[in-house]
Design a protein around this nucleic acid. Sequence first.
DNA 1: ATGACCGGCAGAGCCGGA
Length: 257
Amino acid sequence: MRIATFNINGIRARLPRLVEWLTETQPDVACLQEIKTQDDGFPIKDIEEAGYGAIWHGQKGFNGVAILARGATPAEVTRGLEGEPEDEHSRYIEAEVNGVRIASIYLPNGNPVPGPKFDYKIRWMARLRARAAQIWAEEVPAVLAGDYNVIPFDRDVWKPEAMASDALMQPESRTAYKAMLADGWTDALASRHPNGGVWTYWDYQMNAWPRDAGFRIDHLLLSPAAADRLVDAQVDKIYRGREKASDHAPVWVRLKD
DNA sequence: ATGACCGGCAGAGCCGGA
């Protein structure tokens, strides 16, 4: 079973890229972030024609997450995170697919630092950790996949000094992420590439892609029952080089059946 | 300075992204 996550940066603008990627790589599950559309603008017809069922949590203009499953419709468990009822951002959706719990996560960026957006990011991370603990208690195989907007270690960025003042690399952001690792969640990509130097994002600006000036912010966290089944984790880097590409590349894990 | 791009919304430039 192969589970992928892909921040597509606008599902309508990126639809040809999305269908191409689904057709070429055939992931069993695809978690999408930044669909940037209201629920009624979600291109379900095109996705179904590509052989996938889907659930989605949209929002006008920004954010928005979805879970796709090949030949099936994901069984939704919940959407949104508890703890902040006034929060209307669409950043979390969770489902069951073929016996595996799947979450598609779009964690707040948090810039500028300091400020209310950064405070919201840190609060959101605490809310995510609380939800993760509930899933943990269910003792199910679980994959919490998405754009975490956190560069966990200096080895996860092309040049740490360049991002030092950014929300993605602040000690509080890293501490909150590492708290989940300390809880027992396995960072799948890091576990397969322990020396770092693996990027999932390259800025559109500053010639970042040709210079390979990227960083790693798209993560798949595995519960113990999922980590036991992990056989591979990779970045499909070539999709960052396609015409009208997202600024993120797809990342995936393969679990033993 | 790494150094000037994207998508969405709206119907021009801004906002948000990271």
